[in-house]
Design a protein around this nucleic acid. Sequence first.
DNA 1: CGGGCAATTGAAGTAGATCAAGCCCAGTGG
DNA 2: CCACTGGGCTTGATCTACTTCAATTGCCCG
Lengths: 233, 233
Amino acid sequence: MTLHLDPVALNGAELFDALGEDDRMDVLRAGTVRRLAKGRRIFAQGDPGETCHTLLDGRVKIVQSRPDGGQSVIRFIGPGEMFGTVAALMDRPFPADAVAVVDSVEIHWPVTAMRRLMTRFPQLAICSAASAGRRLFELQERLGELSAERVEQRIARTVARLVRQAGRRTEEGVEIDFPITRQDLAEMTGSTLHTVSRTLSAWDERGVTASSRRRLVVRKLHLLLEIADPDDG
Amino acid sequence: MTLHLDPVALNGAELFDALGEDDRMDVLRAGTVRRLAKGRRIFAQGDPGETCHTLLDGRVKIVQSRPDGGQSVIRFIGPGEMFGTVAALMDRPFPADAVAVVDSVEIHWPVTAMRRLMTRFPQLAICSAASAGRRLFELQERLGELSAERVEQRIARTVARLVRQAGRRTEEGVEIDFPITRQDLAEMTGSTLHTVSRTLSAWDERGVTASSRRRLVVRKLHLLLEIADPDDG
DNA sequence: CGGGCAATTGAAGTAGATCAAGCCCAGTGG
DNA sequence: CCACTGGGCTTGATCTACTTCAATTGCCCG
């Protein structure tokens, strides 16, 4: 089965925004597009980083597992975002697993091909550096939060971030457009599913959110932001 | 007073390792070398990122201050490392302060000049992307630690990292070669100076470390690593 | 020699982890 | 169609590693 190759599919993809349509087509042809069934692991922590990926549709979770058996959710990838690229370009093993959380579509390139493309289109190299920079800043921010803020505040910030990344307006409010568990939230905030559960229950009570099994709707964003940033921001 | 411009001074500097001596000289000439008295602030959080820096000698602390008044020590920079570069290249304000913790020497370039240099020597661009990647991975690691490990373990890891970055062999053991306070350690581990003080006291007791005012010597590295990584690694 | 930054150390309080028990609901297969 | 099963969620009770508060000491530099 062949998926159609539409250069427009890459509109908004961070890696390709700076390229013209013709160039995009060349880049597309050098890669492989494939469907990913929900739950499918795209690469595993420790695998040699030999491929660069960009998500075209769906949602992918990047999870790091720690020696003690615990996991950390590093981030969720949305359409247009690349992943696995930094590791590949640095010839390092992947530092985390990548798992499709819903049925998704991605395109991927062997790192050798990507290097060739980057030589030909320096914009690609610059974009990928910028993307690394953005993530560096984001992590720095999260590091500061994690060491200074209380759990509720961290959960609020995390949910607010998810709203920005994956919020879909509904009549009820803004819904996170992919299934997310309390456990996920716990692993993103350095907490436990128990505490997350209690927190969400309390928020539901107050009408801030409406959460259910794998589903999260923010009904009063202003209140959430208030919790995330008490003395305003 | 003119500091002499010795291309060899840049040996081991991550940004320049890939360049020949002639090219290095060109790069050097485009920048400004200056001494930094201990305590001197090189740039401040929020300043427009208009300069790229590389430390030639000494030690620089990168500190983020949070809205609530607290601070996070993001990292310490040693000779050869660059700083402020990612922000500058992305046209973002600096996300943190940079402060010289001992008398130091740095070289810095206006970001416009650095962009020109990077076009001329693509290696510079690639190196700086790689450097961002390394730091990205390091932060990911720290994020995982911070959310999962107990304070003592985090302090141990942090000290172990400092030993790697700034350890100097002495007859007593390995000494961190710049002045560091309990407060610094607390801000690096997301803890308080009280807890750090108690922890170091306990370690001193056991002969793991020998700490005093702004000074830290690791006497039994194997024990420290044991604490940092209980079930081996 | 004195002023202030760094560090120590005790005592008390608490956020949130951990332990424990049970419930709810979406699939699955008979 | 209904019973079963297991993953996801809730909620109470207890426990504890840290923070916070408070006081004191000691070191270094001017």
